[in-house]
Amino acid sequence: MTELRVPKLNNNDTEYLLVEWLAEDGAGVLKGDPVVVLETSKAAEELAAESDGVLRRTAETGATCRPGEVIAYVSDGSAPAPAVADPGAAAGAGGPFVTAPAQALIDEHGVDPARIRALGKKVIKRADVAALLDDGSTSQMQAQKRAQMQVQPLPAVQRAVAAAVTRSHRTIPAAFTAVKLDAGPATARARALSKEARALIGLPELLVSAVASLHGQFPMCFAEVVVADGPAGEPAVRPSPAPNVGVTVDVGTGLYVPVLRDAGRLSLKEIAERLAAYRTKASRAAFREDDLAGGNIVVTLHTDTAVLLAVPIVFPGQTCALSLCAPQHELALDAAGNVVKRTTVTLGLAFDHRLVNGREAAMFLNAVRKAITP
């Protein structure tokens, strides 16, 4: 008999929600078959059977699970099936079971419970509610009711953001510097590369590629601060073997930071395709933990037209966060002293001052500028 235990899915959560069983209790499963879906604060993750046999569930839909807990067994069929409440019972007689992230979205938008019941599902996830809201049919009365509410729970995604921001400000002595980039040549290059690669390449894609290309030249910008052994507990550094670049994605369903692993090996077309896929996942709230884990530097995008400067947080476990702001038009003098119109963007770098100093930060930013417009 093999135990199915809840793994540690991320560093921000101490418990997860069991949202759906993919195999019936007592059903035969094969090693590697997905059998259950757990929801963290940011993603849904499938767990697979670790051996062939018969699934014997010990936790019900809607249960809160902690890392290390046993939620099922895969047996040879001789063990009796445990008594597990029906998923519909967990919801009560009045309707389906609604996960916490889904309920937060329902409360935020004042969705009529009748519309939730009309979906005909036993378990309602955040993605189900998001799809329901796509038709834009929330009434004005419901909007007014939301405006009158004085206290609203934060969605799970925002709670995770709040935890990361709090920990960052508490533990990382961050500094910040910024440079200006003449975006004209970079934009022209992006247009030419888009035609060549038949993919939508813009400044974000160029920036990700440029950052990844500097991994070997600026290893401290991709490193991790750790506490050294010994009574003093002084900080030490753990270099990263590859540039795993996180990129912020926020399409209105919450802030996510999916990761492009070993981004230095990716072509611009591959970077563009992966970022497009991540934006689609964000719109559906369909990220998996594997999409969000493993980053060692972050590129934050602030492309709303009025954004002149953005100071990102340094994520716990990382050293640097690079911000890209919106293009701005300005008048400048060319080499001959003539007044010309140009478009610029601001690149900012927040950095852990324990590992990176201001001089290195400025050198890194200037190297990024050069890499974007070689």
Rank of each mutant, 00 (worst) to 15 (best):
T99E: 15
L47W: 01
P80L: 10
A49T: 04
S41Y: 04
G120S: 06
P101E: 05
V84H: 01
R117H: 06
T58N: 00
D112K: 00
C65G: 03
E69V: 02
V123C: 13
G120H: 10
D112A: 13
L132A: 01
R146N: 14
V98L: 09
G88T: 05
M141C: 05
R56E: 06
I106D: 00
G120E: 11
C65R: 09
P113N: 04
Y73H: 15
A72S: 14
P82C: 08
T138N: 01
A131F: 03
T58S: 03
T64Y: 07
P113Y: 07
D134L: 12
R117K: 15
K145F: 12
D52Y: 01
D128A: 04
G32R: 03
G26T: 04
P87V: 00
F97K: 03
S75L: 09
G136H: 13
K42N: 04
T61Q: 11
A102L: 04
A104N: 10
Q144E: 13
K122V: 11
R66H: 07
A81S: 15
P67D: 13
I106N: 01
K42I: 01
G53I: 05
G88S: 09
P87H: 07
A89F: 12
E45H: 13
E39M: 12
V129T: 01
G92P: 04
P87W: 10
P101I: 08
A118V: 07
D128Y: 05
R146W: 06
A114N: 02
A102S: 07
S137D: 01
V36A: 15
K122S: 09
S75W: 05
G136F: 12
P80I: 08
E108Y: 00
K42G: 02
D107Q: 04
A102W: 03
V98C: 08
A59M: 14
D25W: 03
S75D: 15
P82R: 02
A118D: 03
E50C: 10
A130Q: 07
D76P: 06
R126M: 02
A44V: 02
D76W: 01
G136S: 14
A143K: 14
A43H: 09
T58K: 01
G28A: 04
A104Y: 04
A44D: 11
V29P: 13
E69G: 03
A90I: 09
D76Q: 05
V129P: 00
G120I: 13
A81E: 14
V84T: 03
H109M: 10
V129Y: 00
R57C: 10
E50D: 14
K121T: 09
I71V: 14
D135A: 15
P34Q: 14
A83V: 14
T138Q: 12
E50F: 07
A72Y: 06
H109Y: 15
K121V: 14
P87G: 12
G110C: 06
D134K: 15
A100D: 14
Q144R: 14
I106R: 00
A79D: 15
V74E: 05
D86R: 09
D135C: 08
A102Q: 08
C65L: 15
D33K: 08
D128P: 07
S41I: 07
T40D: 07
L47Y: 07
D112R: 06
V74P: 02
A127V: 05
Q103P: 11
T138L: 11
A89M: 12
E45R: 10
P67V: 13
A43K: 10
Q140L: 12
A63M: 02
I124S: 09
A27V: 03
G136L: 13
Q144S: 10
C65A: 13
D128N: 11
P113G: 06
G92W: 11
